Simulated assay, not measured.
Amino acid sequence: MPLDPASPLARLIDGPLRTGRVIWIGLRPARRKAMLAVESAQLDPTEGLIGDHYSSRTGGARHVTLIQAEHLSAIASHLGRDALAPELLRRNIVVAGINLAALKGRHFRLGSAVLEATGECHPCSRMEEILGTGGYNSVRGHGGITARVVEGGSVGVGGAMERMPAP
Rank of each mutant, 00 (worst) to 15 (best):
I67H: 00
Q42P: 02
G135E: 12
P123V: 08
P165S: 15
A166C: 12
S56G: 11
M164Y: 06
A96D: 08
I93A: 02
T19R: 07
H78S: 14
G111S: 14
R109Q: 15
E70A: 02
A166N: 10
A113E: 04
K33I: 01
H71A: 04
R57Q: 15
S73D: 12
R31Q: 15
I23G: 08
A102Y: 14
E120Y: 12
Y136N: 07
L17I: 05
I67F: 04
P123M: 09
R57A: 04
G144N: 09
V157M: 03
G144P: 10
M164A: 07
V149M: 03
G119E: 08
E87F: 05
G159D: 13
E116G: 10
G158N: 01
V95D: 00
V95F: 00
C124A: 08
G15C: 07
H53R: 14
I13S: 09
I130C: 04
Y54N: 13
P86V: 04
G143Y: 08
S77G: 11
L12K: 14
W24D: 04
S73Q: 07
R148T: 12
R148W: 06
M161W: 04
A117R: 03
V38S: 00
V114S: 10
I145P: 09
L49Q: 03
T46C: 08
N137P: 05
S112V: 05
T58C: 07
H142C: 10
I67V: 08
G159M: 01
G152E: 02
R140A: 08
R31E: 15
P5E: 13
V155E: 09
D52Q: 04
G48K: 00
A102P: 06
V114R: 12
A117T: 06
M127P: 14
G132P: 06
D82N: 14
P5Y: 10
M127G: 08
R21Y: 00
I25A: 01
E128T: 09
I13L: 15
T133E: 15
A37G: 04
L66M: 15
G80E: 13
A61D: 09
G97Q: 01
L43Y: 06
G59Y: 01
S138T: 04
P167W: 11
A61F: 10
S154V: 02
